[in-house]
Nucleic acid binder design. Structure first.
Length: 336
DNA sequence: AGAATTTGACCGGT
DNA sequence: ACCGGTCAAATTCT
């Protein structure tokens, strides 16, 4: 049992390592392509997306592509080399549809706080009506973004907690949707500086926004995904990887590099991220990059697919969402 | 004054 | 028992 789970963990670690590596390459490639794109008028033959490289020209893009392929190939090999049969059962979580009692669900009856009267709240030590009474909800839908800016998403967030995390240099901050009290929006996010690169933040989004943007500037909403993706304003931004989660959280963090401005966490106090709400940053819209990656085995260049949606091409595109359904199903099925 | 953040306490999962 | 996530009073900000 134990050895099995250890084995699983080491495998998943390998997988993640490889993915991280591949992801880094992919990011570089994007930069490269983007750079080439910006130089398009000078040297059109360099554009990789369409056709071809110049014969005899040692195209760095090609090399990167090869590395990417290799990296992801290794990943697949790792998974292949692991015999899932040995591990057997994989608890497939029911996606978060319960959420029983009090908790932060605004629709939930005030069962545990005894009506949540201000009275009872005050007597903390005295037994019931204590704060912190909630039921931990199953982590429904989470994905992780590595970004230099924590306001990348432009939603309106309110910080509700901060905590020192074991083995982490930096505390983790907890945010919930500003509209939770009014609209019961359950979206939350957690922000934590990366140890390896303190300029980068790991942002874990949990749940989708259900708030409507009635009191917000809805104009952003439709474009939200793309905004995250490219953030043309600041040239930035986030190399992102989306990670679905079923239950036994895999929290695989896939890092990426990006350049741009840094915002410290305090900036989140400010107003700049108050103006947007609604539109979900999420799955439905994200391209199925991962599937493409997984198929690189058989096919060759899919890099064009990394661009999501309407190709609102900007020279500073720096993104890539990965649909990780496949990754997760892999992880799940290997019990990672 | 109201909104947002901070921070220590508390709860639940492992 | 420990640790992470949430609550809510206190504090700070606008």
């Amino acid at each position: 049992m134990d050895s099995n789970s250890n084995n699983n963990k080491s495998i998943s670690r390998k997988v993640v390592d490889q993915l991280v590596e591949g992801y880094g390459f992919a990011t570089q490639l994007q930069r490269l392509l983007s750079h080439q794109h910006s130089n398009n008028h000078i040297d059109q033959t360099r554009i990789v997306s369409g056709s071809g490289s110049v014969p005899g020209d040692p195209d760095p893009a090609e090399e990167l592509i090869a590395k990417i392929l290799e990296s992801f190939h290794k990943t697949i090999s790792v998974l292949d080399s692991f015999d899932p049969i040995a591990d057997v059962s994989v608890p497939i979580a029911v996606e978060g549809s319960r959420n029983a009692s009090c908790g932060d669900d605004s629709t939930a009856p005030a069962s545990c706080n005894g009506g949540d009267s201000g009275e009872s709240r005050k007597k903390l030590g005295v037994g019931k009506g204590k704060r912190g009474c909630y039921t931990r909800k199953p982590r429904s839908h989470t994905w992780i973004v590595i970004a230099r800016r924590i306001d990348e998403d432009r939603y309106a967030w309110r910080k509700y907690g901060q905590k020192e995390i074991l083995n982490s240099k930096f505390p983790r901050s907890y945010f919930r949707c500003t509209h939770k009290p009014t609209q019961g929006c359950k979206a939350t996010k957690q922000v934590q500086k990366q140890e390896q690169d303190p300029e980068m933040f790991q942002i874990t989004y949990i749940g989708h926004h259900t708030c409507t943007a009635s009191d917000q500037t809805q104009t952003k909403t439709e474009q939200f995904d793309q905004e995250i993706i490219m953030d043309s304003d600041n040239t930035v931004a986030a190399t992102t990887v989306k990670v679905h989660e079923q239950e036994n959280n895999i929290s695989s963090v896939i890092t990426g590099l990006s350049a741009g401005m840094v915002k410290e966490e305090e900036n989140n106090n400010g107003d700049h991220n108050k103006d947007y709400c609604e539109g979900s940053s999420t799955d439905g819209d994200l391209s199925l990059v991962w599937q493409d990656v997984m198929m690189l085995d058989d096919h060759q260049h899919h890099q064009n697919h990394y661009y999501h949606g309407e190709t609102r091409t900007t020279s500073s595109q720096q993104f890539s969402f990965i649909d990780n359904d496949q990754l997760y199903s892999l992880f799940d099925s290997y019990g990672a």
